[in-house]
């Protein structure tokens, strides 16, 4: 068995209000970059990264969903197939924490029963603007059976720990083969221009 075929897939979905930093967390984890101004996600973005947990290679397949209300109806498509849901709020916004609770309720009623949850309070670098106390968020996470992290995509605080820890909890499925092959060689019949009848 090759090393590549040993890689297992873990599907992770990021959910939360618009502007809480879901894309920034995903980008920090996958590319180790941070952009102070990040365009708002439209639809959903997909990223992947292989991590090693307890000597096992895991391929995190991350769905970064749009937080805007108009895309809410699309979210079930992403969390239904997910093994992990990371619910993100902005710790400088109490409103975003309330929105997170809505996501948790929706997942409880409509999400996969086995889905593993994490609550991530992002923007922990903005301590002086904090609106959500650590204790309150930790208690809420405990209540819903979720792991809790305070993160900063900007300062790279707890981001890798968040994804790696969650991926490590998943009984991973085997990675499906890609299976498609295309040949760019144009068959001869396609190279020959079609002759047109003169009449």
């Amino acid at each position: 068995m090759t090393e590549k075929s040993k890689v297992k897939e873990v599907k992770v979905v990021l959910l939360g209000d618009t502007g809480v930093g879901k894309s920034s967390l995903a980008q920090r984890f996958v590319t180790n970059n941070f952009k102070p101004y990040c365009e708002t996600t439209i639809g959903a973005s997909f990223m992947s990264k292989i991590v090693v947990v307890d000597g096992k290679h895991l391929k995190c397949q991350i769905w970064d969903t749009a937080g805007q209300e108009k895309y809410h109806s699309l979210a079930p498509m992403y969390y239904r197939g997910a093994a992990v849901a990371i619910l993100v709020y902005d710790m400088t916004s109490a409103k975003s924490f309330e929105k997170l609770k809505e996501w948790a309720r929706e997942l409880r009623t409509q999400g996969p029963t086995e889905i593993i949850l994490a609550v991530a309070g992002n923007k922990s670098d903005l301590e002086d603007r904090r609106e959500v106390d650590t204790g309150v968020a930790q208690t809420y996470a405990d209540d819903i059976g979720a792991a809790f992290f305070e993160t900063s995509a900007k300062d790279d605080r707890n981001v890798s720990d968040l994804f790696t820890a969650m991926a490590g909890r998943v009984p991973a499925a085997a990675s499906p083969a890609d299976g498609f092959r295309i040949d760019a060689h144009v068959p001869r019949r396609e190279q020959t221009p079609k002759r047109k009848s003169c009449c």
Binding site: Q27, V30, N33, I42, G43, S45, F46, M47, D64, L74
Partner: peptide, 12 residues
């Protein structure tokens, strides 16, 4: 910018 940052995107 957002599209390049992602591996791929799924846009309505």
């Amino acid at each position: 910018a957002a599209l390049v940052a992602a591996e791929s995107s799924w846009l309505p």
